[in-house]
Simulated assay, not measured.
Amino acid sequence: MFPKSTERVSAKSVKQLTIIIVSYNTAPMTLKAIEALDLHNRSVDYDCIVIDNASTDGSVEKISEAFPMVRVISLRENVGFACANNLAASYCTTPYLLLLNPDTEADVGAVCALMTFAKAAPGAGIWGGRTVFSDRTLNKASCWAAPSLHSLLFRAVGLSRIFSQSALFNPEEYGNWERDDIRQVDIVVGCLLLIRRDIWNMLGGFNSKYFMYGEDADLCLRARALGCQPMITPDAQIVHHVGASTNNNDEKAILVMKARVSLIQDHWPAWQVRYGILLMWFWSALRFVITRPLAYSGNSKGVLSAQRWQLIWRRRDTWLNGYDQA
């Protein structure tokens, strides 16, 4: 079990939570995210920090003007999601940190429910909620199981897609679990991730080599190695308008593959790593071959899929080594 919190909050202290939002050319959505917090989650007294990754859409000025109570930190260059969160967290003094994506809108009482859950299950150390798409249908990507040899094999040969509701063949998504009950998970996704600040500090925050994608998985897996038991509650729900910070889907595809390779390198037993990298190569090669006919199908989704896997295959040298180890 992870050690109890070392934080001491005086009786006079009110704020126990700081919400951190990393923005990058997402001014309209970031404003909506803060507005949802302000309208629907006033029962929690929190600080809010928006750290801006050198946006060019006037995010800093717009957010500062609309919400003067929010601390806005403007960076001169895009340092990535991981480094930006680390920098923002260095300014925090509250016992809890909540990482929230700019393309989210918290439901009524979501933050309060998450804080209540954290205090009821302190051993978890990291807590998350339930995410839905804009149409209110379930978005499973609030949590994941850790990737493994067999989960990657099933992804590579397509069984995870064919049997998406199977916990056996689609273990990373926890099969058909609707995220409708409390459960321990391996990974809480960084779009809505609550963590004790002392645990964050002990872990050194995000590993900064993960520029974007994979940093939350790495954090949770390192926390689990120290005794944390991350948990999900359905009572804390947000709408996640996916992908606002990465408008270039080609860039996202490469970063996701690179992050998966880095997670294999960083968290799998040494003897499994070479097999994991081989499966990543096989996965991309097989998808490249299978989707080639779709490029000429006239179906827009099929064409996009073929183009994406063509790009991933041709740029395999870019991601097969993972993120730089420096």
Rank of each mutant, 00 (worst) to 15 (best):
L311V: 06
S13K: 07
M29N: 11
A167S: 11
D186P: 07
I264H: 06
A145Q: 14
C191K: 07
V189I: 14
V22N: 07
N78I: 00
M257G: 00
V157T: 08
S10L: 12
L75H: 00
D107A: 15
S245E: 11
K209M: 09
A33L: 01
L255F: 05
C228I: 02
N53W: 00
G227M: 01
G243E: 08
T26Y: 04
A141C: 09
A121M: 07
F81W: 12
C220F: 12
D107T: 11
P3L: 05
R161P: 01
R130Y: 06
Y96D: 15
F67P: 07
T233K: 03
P147H: 14
V303A: 05
Y91S: 07
D107S: 15
H241V: 08
L278N: 09
L138M: 04
A121N: 12
D324R: 14
Y296S: 10
W313S: 09
D52M: 00
I238C: 05
D57C: 01
I21D: 11
L193D: 02
W268F: 07
F133E: 13
I51C: 00
S262H: 03
A146Y: 04
A36T: 02
A295M: 15
R308D: 07
P269T: 08
D107M: 14
R224A: 09
S74C: 10
G123Q: 14
P234M: 06
W271C: 03
V289N: 04
I182M: 05
V14N: 00
L226E: 05
M115L: 15
S10I: 10
N299R: 09
E105G: 09
L31I: 13
Y323F: 15
S164V: 02
G58Y: 08
N139G: 12
V60E: 01
A253Q: 05
L193I: 08
E178R: 13
N53D: 04
L39N: 13
S13H: 13
K119F: 12
A259L: 04
L37Y: 07
R224Q: 12
S262R: 09
A84R: 04
L226A: 15
Q165L: 11
A306R: 06
R161A: 13
P230E: 02
A167G: 14
W177L: 13
L278G: 10
E35C: 07
T26M: 10
S151K: 07
P68E: 13
F81C: 05
